[in-house]
């Protein structure tokens, strides 16, 4: 069987794409000049933050097909068929993820703008490496900028979370 090309064509400037967000199948109508970040926020996933829009700050980090990626640099139409996890899919207020608990306990959250990205990057780190060294954590959070703290508390938080997850 010959596999044919997927052809997406914008009708009146709009692509229709289907994708999975936090385990739920969704259909999005996205503009042809729209980025995944804007599309996600328009459809209510406002946990992904719009910071620099050029891939520098990391506040728009989402898990895209299993790896942290920057939603501000992903043209929305290329997410057709993709699996995405946003911060909304990680934990809730009543039932937070161990990382989220640890960030609060360690006092790693000040203004909070960078935290969704930080949590998603750290979550992927702990998924692939359950006991990271301090150096691993620093290198992994390299692309997530925070302008409030000095990064010390976040690193502590990731260490705490790693312990919590191992105990559970």
């Amino acid at each position: 069987m010959k596999k044919e090309s997927i052809r997406l064509e914008a009708v009146n400037g709009v692509f229709r794409i289907s994708l999975t967000v936090n385990g739920v199948k969704k259909n999005f109508a996205v503009k042809n000049n729209e980025f995944l970040l804007n599309a996600l926020r328009r459809y209510g996933y406002k946990g992904a933050k719009k910071g620099c829009d050029t891939g520098d700050c990391g506040s728009c980090t989402v898990i895209f097909n299993g790896k942290p990626a920057l939603a501000c640099l992903i043209p929305a139409f290329t997410a057709h068929g993709a699996e995405i996890t946003t911060i909304e899919g990680v934990g809730t207020v009543r039932n937070p993820h161990p990382l989220q608990e640890a960030f609060v306990e360690a006092g790693a959250v000040q203004c909070g703008f960078c935290i969704p990205g930080m949590i998603l990057s750290s979550k992927h780190l702990l998924d692939v490496n359950p006991s990271p060294s301090e150096d691993d954590i620093k290198k992994y959070l390299d692309g997530n900028l925070c302008r409030c703290t000095g990064y010390v508390k976040q690193i502590q938080a990731v260490k705490m979370a790693a312990k919590k997850i191992k105990k559970a």
């Binding site: 596999k3 997927i6 052809r7 914008a10 692509f15 000049n33 139409f77 290329t78």
Partner: peptide, 13 residues
């Protein structure tokens, strides 16, 4: 961004 995006599955395609 362009109005049309094509994603071929193979180099031959």
């Amino acid at each position: 961004m362009p109005p049309i995006v094509v994603k071929p599955p193979t180099l031959q395609a």
